[in-house]
Structures are given as structure tokens and as C-alpha cells.
Design a binder for these strands. Structure first.
Lengths: 337, 337
DNA sequence: CTGTTAGCGCCTTCAG
DNA sequence: CTGAAGGCGCTAACAG
């Protein structure tokens, strides 16, 4: 059952069927009606492959993320797909697992599928791959790691604001020895968070201490291991900021395993504010980076680049906000510390 | 850059290029070499749309899940995609959000894309949709909710085993009033879990008590609300089994909010054993349903149906196992209970 | 406003 | 073992 069949039954040409379905050019209301009736009657759906083959447009948006098991991403994906659904676009999801080879694999799959645009929500992106995308004139939106140019927009996250707020919060709670568990230093976003931490450390007149910075992997296990190292320090920190919430959850466990209490013995701050953070014990104080906002901005930036008259890329800003819950408390309050 | 270009440069016909690339028929080693050299030199990738258009095969597998935000699914997706990657297949992911309309939407998208097979890892599936898939002779694998027939396999989860083990565990810990928080009763998998609970309840000679069963939604919020209802009971349960881990995490919070301790005041058992369950406070005793195993069985079942000589569907079994951690304890041990 | 026609890039008979 | 040629289903000029 194809366009010819529809054309035959509606007693029009295939071109007319195509036109009414795509609204690509004006068709008289009566003929349009005839066509739609047949389409409905037959339950006809145009063949996407034929359509893509001839038109070159796929109505597909690529979305590349680094770790589908990190709850941050499913939440982002959900919002992004929601928007795509409304606009009649489909999304091709790619999970890189923080692996540059996978990244390259997926970029090539996207090229093959001739996606209309790609959202790159991860930072292990090599210049060569960007160049390939550019060559095919495929619009890109980066999360935080792109330089804006033609057909490339970027969502810039203001990490500093949230981190400064967190530091201020901790300092007000009389913390002086504040540790940080970073993400893998190969990730640009992890580096940015780390830098923001160091800067605000100085800003609050705290003494820099390299041992207070441990490297995690943005997963639970790395957070736990890093926290264990922090706890083994001769002078352990009284508060710790983690580069993402998963890291904080791992840290939480390490702290409990050491028979310490939160926040009486150690205060803990996460980053991202994944949905789950409200439900840890105690509920996690964290810096919110709204997935919905990121997803919406990414989607809109992409469609602007795709459909817009101008191909000029833009910088979009997303703020971060401190959400105070129960994992942070006054230092020195504990009866036995 | 297309097949004609490759043919020209290799000084062979397009048919030969097609044949060497697909290995569909025998090509002499020398010509094959010539072709491959040109292919590599040009970085040529066949156009998927043209290929799918003419061959009718998409090399796409559909994977339908109900809630991407429930960590159970990302973990499953990850394993499934891993396997697909190895076999050179791609997966089209669809999230229904427990919404039958979305389900219908996605099934139609899959039909349009002519997926080679579909894994349906959710239970809100209407017969009509199955019929449409069957009409196009598309193989299906269900998670737990399908009846095996031609081109339809099913992964049967032995919920009973894990639930019985959990009940036995609780009974040995001297619990008698055991509550259950079910999933939404519209979900067949939730119903099955509920039934298994009720059966083993009788099996251990416990008195049935309808008020001890509350309905959740397989999400955190529903678990929390259901647990609050359980706690408000004149005679509250001393142990609670939740229909999935997310529900248990919500319950955890409700229990803490009521200033009760786990497991001293209330024991809690989850279901699924998502990765996170090890990291709740206390670590969750739960019934493991291996995502990896489900994903692998689903994938293999699907490829067997697609490539196998026989179109006969099969029933595959997956066991569940009790994982004892720290959220369950002896009843009546608490100093102040 | 509508129909005719030429491909899009590839696979697959059918001959050689 | 290899080449020529016909479509897969659709869209996009180009005429009318």
C-alpha cells in the first residue's frame, strides 16, 4: 500500500497526494479532502525511507549523552523527546559510555541517518568529529563544551553561581576544611566544575589544599572511593562538595561505613539535583541544574538552527541554584566531635 | 559519493560493489579487494535509506519501555544496546510513560521504520497493536506479558520464587504483619507481583488483611504515599514488601519522616535490585531481577526469531533471587518498640 | 491548482 | 563470477 495506491483510489496523481500530505504547496480543499479520506480509510503512512531518500531530510534529531545509567540523562532525554514529539520529530538516542570510540561510532551513524541536527550533551567530543558534522552542514548544540559559530550553538551553564552559593552556605555554617570530589579530569564539564570550586575557594579566603581534592568518575563507585580517601586524611574535611549527585551518593555510603553522621560529622553537597536527591537519607543539599531547562533550550536552539533563516549560532545560559536540604549543617555542633 | 562512484573507481559494476559489501553472493577475492580499497579510501558508507527502501530490511530493533526515569530501564537498555552494537544492529528506543496512547504512537513509528523485531518491556499493550505487528510479520519479545505463538516469544519472570524467599526471610525474622505496596493495578507485571505476594502470604499461614496492601505507582512518590497510609493504620505492619525498588525508596523516606528506624521499627524489602539499592541508607534488602539477563534473553530471543529457520516462539525463564542487605531485621528487637 | 516525469541510492533478478 | 537494467516509494521540477 503506497502513494500510487492512494492516488489511484482518490483519482488524483501521486504528486497531489504528496502535496496534500506534506502541505508543501497549495491543494484545493476538495481534492485535499478526497485524499485525506482515502489516506484515513487505508491507514496509509508514507514510507519514511523513500521520503528520506529523495528529500534528504530525515526528521530525525540526534541526541548524544554520556551515561544513560546516570539519572541526570534519562530526565533530560525525557524532556527532549517530549518536545520532539510535539513537533513531529523523532530522536535518535546515542549513549557513549564516556568512550571516545563510541562517540565516533555514533556520530557516523548519525551522519548515515542524515539527522537534521544533533544535541551533544557530553564533552568527550573530538574536533575531527565536529568537522565531519560541519562538512555536512548539520546543526549542533553543545552542552557547555562548544564554541559558538555558524550552525553551532552552545548551552552555557553557570556552574560558578551555584558553587559559590554552596561555598557561602558552608562557610556560614563555619566550615573551613572543605573537600571536593571532582569528575574524571578528561571531561571538560568536570574540569569546569573543579575550576569553579577552586576559584570560590580562594574567594572565601580559604587555604588551598590539594589533598582535599579527589578525583571521582561521576558514578557512585568513584564517589565512594574518593570519599574514603578523604576520610583517611590526617585532617579530614568537615564538608565535601561532589561534582555530581551520583558521586555524592557514593560519598554518603562511605561516610556511613566510617560510622560518621551527616551532617553532624560531615556536611555533603551534591550537584545536578537529580530527582533522587530528595530521597537520600538525609535528603541531599545540592546544586540544581535543571534538566528540563537544558533539554528545552537545547531543543529550541537546535530547531532554530534547522528552520531559522539565520544559521548563526547562539550562546544560551542556564543558571544553577543551591537547594538546601538536610545533608549540610553547622560545623562543631556534634556532641562527640 | 555513492555506490556508482565506488563502482567507477574500482572499475566494476555497482552490482559487484553491493555484493562485496553485503557478502550476499560470492565475489572473487581480487575484485573484492579492489572494491574494499576504494570503499576505505573514500570512507564510503552505504545510504541506509536507499538500502532499507529496496531491501525492506532496516537492521533496526525496536525497544519499548515504560519509564526511562526508572533506573531499571536504563540498565536494561544499556545491556540490550550493547548486544545490538556487537551484531551491527541499531535500536530504536521508545518510552511510553505508562501511556497507552504513546504505546500506540510508538508501535506505528516502528511499523513505519520497518523494524526487524520489537522488544516490548512493558505491559500496557493492546491486542490491536499486537495484531498490527503480526500482520506485518514482525517478531516480538514480551517481558512477562505475552502469550507465545508464531513469531512471538516471551520472557517469563519467576516472581514467585523471589517473593517466597523474601516472605520466608521475614517470617524467620518473626514478622507476622507484613504489608505490600503494589504497582498500578493496570500493569500486568504489577498484578503478577501482587498475586505472588498474596499466594505466599497464605503459604506461610499468615492472615490475609486487605488493609495491608496499598497501591503505588512504581515511582518514588507513590511508594512514599502508600507507606504513609500503611503507617497511619491502627495496627501498622512490622515489615513491608514493595513492588519495585523505586517504591521502596519512597517508603524509606516515609518511614524516616515518621521518625521510625529501619530495620529496628520496620523492615523493608524492595524488588528489582537496581544498582542504587546498595546505596540507600540502610542498604536495601531486595529481590533481584537481573536486567542484564532480561536484556540478553530478550535480544537473543528476538534475533532467533528474526534469523532462525523456525518462526516458532519460545518461553524463556528468568529467576528472581533475594538479596539480603540491611533494611530487614528481627522483629521486636528494638529497645523502644 | 494538478499531472507527468525524472531521479534519490541501492539491491536483485536475469543474462552472460 | 560479473554486468545490465528494473524498480523500491516518494518528492521536486516542469509543464499545462
Amino acid at each position: 500500500m503506497n502513494i500510487t495506491e492512494v492516488a489511484k483510489r482518490a483519482k488524483v496523481s501521486t504528486a497531489t497526494v504528496s502535496r496534500t500530505i506534506n502541505g508543501s504547496s497549495i491543494v484545493s480543499p476538495e481534492t485535499a479532502d478526497k485524499v485525506w479520506n482515502v489516506v484515513r480509510a487505508l491507514g496509509y503512512h508514507p514510507n519514511r525511507y523513500a521520503r528520506a531518500l529523495v528529500s534528504g531530510r530525515s526528521h530525525l534529531l540526534g541526541l548524544i549523552i554520556s551515561d544513560i545509567v546516570n539519572p541526570f540523562f534519562p530526565e533530560l532525554i525525557k524532556s527532549f523527546e517530549e518536545m520532539a514529539l510535539q513537533k513531529g520529530l523523532e530522536v535518535l538516542l546515542a549513549n557513549t559510555n564516556y568512550d571516545p570510540e563510541r562517540m565516533s561510532h555514533w556520530v557516523h551513524r548519525m551522519l548515515e541517518r542524515k539527522v537534521d541536527g544533533v544535541g551533544i550533551m557530553t564533552s568527550e567530543m573530538e574536533e575531527g568529529l565536529v568537522a565531519e558534522l560541519e562538512k555536512r552542514r548539520i546543526p549542533i548544540v553543545f552542552l557547555d563544551t562548544g564554541k559558538v559559530r555558524s550552525r553551532i550553538s552552545n548551552i552555557r551553564v553557570n556552574y560558578g553561581k551555584g558553587i559559590r552559593a554552596a561555598m557561602e552556605h558552608l562557610v556560614q555554617l563555619r566550615h573551613q576544611r572543605i573537600g571536593f570530589i571532582s569528575g574524571p579530569l578528561t571531561l571538560r564539564s568536570a574540569l569546569t566544575r573543579r575550576t569553579a570550586f577552586l576559584e570560590s575557594f580562594g574567594h572565601f579566603g580559604l587555604l588551598p589544599d590539594e589533598t582535599l581534592i579527589q578525583v571521582g568518575d561521576h558514578k557512585i563507585d568513584g564517589g565512594k572511593a574518593a570519599m574514603e580517601r578523604l576520610l583517611a586524611l590526617p585532617k579530614r574535611p568537615t564538608a565535601v562538595l561532589a561534582s555530581n549527585d551520583l558521586t555524592a551518593i557514593g560519598a554518603l555510603r562511605a561516610i556511613y561505613n566510617a560510622n560518621l553522621r551527616i551532617p553532624e560529622d560531615i556536611s555533603l553537597v551534591g550537584f545536578d539535583d537529580i530527582y533522587l536527591s530528595q530521597f537520600t537519607q538525609p535528603a541531599l543539599t545540592t546544586i540544581r541544574l535543571s534538566r528540563t531547562e537544558v533539554a528545552e533550550k537545547a531543543f529550541n536552539a537546535l530547531t532554530a538552527l534547522i528552520n531559522g533563516k539565520s544559521q548563526k549560532g547562539h550562546e544560551y545560559d542556564v543558571e544553577t541554584h543551591l537547594i538546601v536540604r538536610s545533608s549540610t549543617g553547622l560545623h562543631g555542633q556534634s556532641p562527640n566531635s
